[in-house]
């Protein structure tokens, strides 16, 4: 099917770029392997959709494509949550800077009010 050919071509491209970046020392070998596993795994699921059903059945989900959707929702949830946490970290750093700026001109141990 056409969609399978297109998606696998895209994944092959991604795999190529991943290893190219490794050779350019942009990413580490560990990262390269992690990404490769992801691309190849996606390629296998696209080329042989029944493998997804196999995994899905293992988790108690009936259909492979349903399993992919569930897994994506969980992954997106985790990613969004991580963004929230990192935003909070940035907000706290911002507050710390605003505070330091506000306290800069404060005299020490002098009369106030």
């Amino acid at each position: 099917m056409l969609i399978q050919i297109v998606l696998i071509a895209v994944l092959l491209g991604a795999l190529y770029v991943t290893w190219r970046r490794m050779r350019q020392n942009v990413i580490t070998l560990g990262e390269t392997l992690l990404w490769s596993v992801l691309w190849i795994g996606a390629g296998v699921v696209i080329a042989l959709p029944q493998t997804a059903t196999l995994v899905a059945n293992f988790f108690g989900v009936g259909r492979g494509s349903d399993f992919v959707i569930y897994a994506s929702v969980v992954t997106l949830f985790v990613l969004v949550f991580k963004i929230f946490v990192s935003m909070e970290g940035l907000e706290r750093k911002l507050t710390e800077m605003v505070r330091r700026d506000a306290l800069r001109d404060l005299p020490k141990k002098e009369d106030a009010g």
């Binding site: 911002l94 605003v98 505070r99 700026d101 506000a102 404060l106 009369d111 106030a112």
Partner: peptide, 27 residues
């Protein structure tokens, strides 16, 4: 005529209290 500090941007009531508390300790 009291001590007034200013946050360059709005950071919330908790942030304001903490800045004020640190200032109070400093003086």
């Amino acid at each position: 005529g009291v001590t007034v500090l200013r946050h360059a941007m709005n950071r919330g009531q908790g942030a304001g209290l903490k800045t004020g508390t640190e200032a109070a300790l400093q003086i």
